[in-house]
Design a protein around this nucleic acid. Structure first.
Lengths: 221, 221
DNA sequence: GTCTATATTAAGATAGAC
DNA sequence: GTCTATCTTAATATAGAC
């Protein structure tokens, strides 16, 4: 079904690699079809246009990731109490599972998410909030339960910072980890990266609430 | 000297706004020259090519930011002791000073840095490390002094996470803060954003060192 | 320094034969 | 479904008059 070596699938496979490496805008349909050993016209035939191909690449990964991520979150919510590390650790298993779905799957997925947020403005964001809003709500709810004293505005910003740290790391992880390439090492590195990222994010989100530490430049009273 | 209303400067002013908004790749020379009220050929005449223009835009801001940032770091290093918040607060005054250099200067600079790291791969990174390596070293040194027990690898990754959270927030700050537009409110928001970001980053960098929390999938012993 | 006109390149997309 | 050939558009860049 999903893994057939059809032209349509070869294009998808080639596209996700190139998109992850160079970004969506910087990857031409010619580069994709050449890498896939397909004809230039094939993309338009099978996916309508480039946007359709991007959507297909993103959704294939999201359909792998989101359901298992949701399961983790549901399980977490069943516990009486948990901390912020537990919340972020919910991403771990779903992320690593992508490596069995596809070679280097975790890294590719991470890069794609990063690209999707920086390259195409709002495209991915819209996709996720319309299709997977329930998962987002579960996640935000878990963060709130783990640290209830966060006011909504601080929560909003800190989740945004978190997204930034994750997405940026993800998008450039290939460039950074250009050391080892074979599968086993990649597996180790991916898990290691998550293990490093989780405590950082958890500590950031649970930081003491900022005081009003404005620079007093000219205080008249 | 620097603020003359020459065509060359009008192009620079128009370019930095458009680059910050849409990114480097998505901003055509036509859009820039039109906004600047200049002829299309003027960019090539004054800056050689588009890369030259991008460099000029970036370096004009970096020349404003880096020297004052360096001063703050030197002053910090003179103290007997300081914590991680103090380290990150060194960015605050230099960043806000950009608002007197130019309207909305802080936000524009932040966006440009964000764009520079995501759009053009390595371009900005090279620029900073070759021209301002001393400042980077001072900064990393301050982080080390504030939290000496960090091993080099953990330090490396956490600074990278920090860069990601900052850069991503910066690049999308305009999109997020599309609420208020007038200068006074912008000033407030910029400072507020820094005040929110600093404790998050400081807490992340000083998080407890990650234990080896690997997923035991199939442990044979 | 500034303009018009144009060269060059590259990309997305489609028509129509097979 | 796949291919060749081609259309269309848009971008960077330059030549050469003024």
């Amino acid at each position: 079904m999903a893994g057939q070596e059809t032209t349509k699938n070869r294009i998808l496979d080639a596209a996700e690699l190139l998109f992850a490496e160079r970004g969506f805008k910087d990857t031409s349909l010619r580069a994709i079809t050449t890498a896939a050993g397909a004809n230039l016209a094939a993309v338009n035939y099978h996916y309508g246009d480039k946007k359709g191909l991007i959507r297909a690449v993103l959704s294939r990964y999201l359909e792998q990731f989101m359901p298992t991520f949701k399961k983790e979150l549901v399980t977490l919510h069943q516990r009486d109490e948990f901390d912020m590390n537990d919340v972020f650790l919910c991403t771990k298993r779903p992320l690593l599972r992508l490596n069995s779905f596809k070679n280097n799957g975790t890294t590719i997925f991470m890069s794609l998410i990063g690209r999707g947020y920086t390259d195409v403005q709002g495209h991915l964001r819209w996709f996720i909030t319309t299709h997977y809003d329930d998962v987002i709500q579960l996640f935000v709810g878990a963060v709130r339960r783990a640290y209830p004293c966060l006011d909504p505005e601080t929560l909003f910003w800190r989740l945004h910072f978190t997204l930034g740290a994750s997405v940026f790391t993800m998008a450039s992880s290939t460039a950074l980890c250009e050391i080892a390439v074979n599968d086993f090492t990649t597996q180790i590195q991916t898990e290691d990266l998550i293990n490093r990222l989780v405590p950082y994010l958890a500590a950031g989100v649970t930081a003491p609430i900022a005081l009003n530490q404005g620079l007093v430049v000219s205080n008249t009273v």
